[in-house]
């Protein structure tokens, strides 16, 4: 029997995918947790960021900094397009528009008309090349046991988590500032904040752009170690991010990181455990059913959490206490 899955699962703790999901969820925390904006299209922001990065770096051969800039600009424009018509309206308009916009992006990039740029349903390969070229680490593999990574894998982990760290620091500084106070006030009651002389529309737009840029950068980070696949950006991605957000605690700065780690470690561990059970014929399911069952396990974990700890793992109890 192979118990390697246990250390491998803990490798998920600091995998670049965990970092990318954490970053996208930090964006969602800015939107939903702190400002109260119901963005159901964070997958769309990730897709926009991923495509902006991949197209500029692979198809147009821009240097790395150019592609990063393009990612930020594209996510900002996407946020403005979504926000300008909806942020003056009732909260539910934003959710409908964002969920639709994310699907429009995913379906549009797959159409044959755009496939010379977007790669159609094949997606785009090799978006990580310009990033890997910046790797200053020596060749070879380091680590121990199954947690041995190549020089490129290490570089990606270091940079990915550094970006997450910077995003956390930014959000931390902003949320405890007067800007954060206005944002949290808007979450509670935007008319009250308006009556106190704050331009609520502008603040909501700022929050939408900020969280959207985190989502876009997360989309770019996500495709560094893999190819860009349009179907990775379906609605379920947004709901995974919401799961992570609620696991960690919606209105907390560090919740998204904790949530993302728990999400990926749980997925990976339950996968390993199920494999063991299936191979030993203890669990009466097939290997194909195993994939979806992992998500059932995460779903049940979320339900238990919401019942017993509605504020999330790192949330303050009082935050969940008042459902005002």
């Amino acid at each position: 029997m192979d118990y390697n899955f246990i250390p491998l699962s803990f490798g998920e703790l600091f995998s670049p995918t965990t970092a990318a999901y954490a970053l996208a969820t930090i964006g969602l925390a800015v939107h939903f947790g702190f400002t109260g904006l119901l963005n159901f299209g964070q997958a769309g922001f990730m897709a926009i960021g991923g495509y902006a990065f991949a197209i500029t770096s692979v198809k147009w051969q821009w240097p790395l900094y150019g592609s990063v800039l393009a990612t930020i600009v594209a996510a900002t424009i996407f946020a403005l397009i979504l926000g300008i018509p909806t942020l003056r309206l009732r909260a539910d308009y934003l959710s409908i528009v964002t969920i639709a916009a994310a699907e429009i992006i995913r379906l549009s990039v797959k159409t044959p008309e755009f496939s010379s740029i977007t790669g159609g349903s094949e997606g785009i390969n090799g978006a990580g090349a310009t990033f890997n070229a910046t790797n200053p680490l020596p060749e070879g593999s380091f680590g121990f046991g199954v947690l041995t990574y190549t020089s490129e894998q290490w570089w990606l982990r270091i940079v990915g988590w550094t970006v997450v760290g910077i995003a956390l620091l930014l959000v931390f500084l902003l949320i405890r500032s007067p800007w954060g106070r206005v944002i949290r006030g808007i979450r509670e009651d935007e008319d009250a904040v308006r009556s106190l002389g704050k331009n609520v529309y502008s603040y909501k737009m700022q929050a939408l752009v900020l969280g959207g840029v985190f989502g876009g950068l997360a989309g770019a980070m996500f495709i560094l170690p893999r190819s860009l696949q349009p179907d990775n950006y379906g609605t379920q991605l947004t709901f995974f991010l919401y799961t992570i957000l609620l696991l960690g605690g919606a209105a907390t700065v560090f919740g998204p990181v904790i949530g993302s780690i728990i999400f990926w470690v749980t997925l990976s561990l339950s996968d390993g455990l199920l494999s063991l059970g299936v191979n030993a014929q203890v669990i009466p399911i097939t290997a194909i059913q195993q994939g979806p069952i992992r998500f059932v396990i995460v779903g049940v974990a979320l339900m238990i959490l919401v019942i017993f700890r509605p504020q999330g793992i790192s949330g303050k109890k009082k935050d969940a206490q008042f459902s005002v």
Partner: peptide, 18 residues
């Protein structure tokens, strides 16, 4: 407002500073 709009999950002081 007729229907009071205290900002519930902000502290009393934060309400004031806003």
């Amino acid at each position: 407002f007729q229907l009071t709009k205290a900002l519930g999950r902000l502290t009393v002081l934060e309400n004031m500073l806003l």
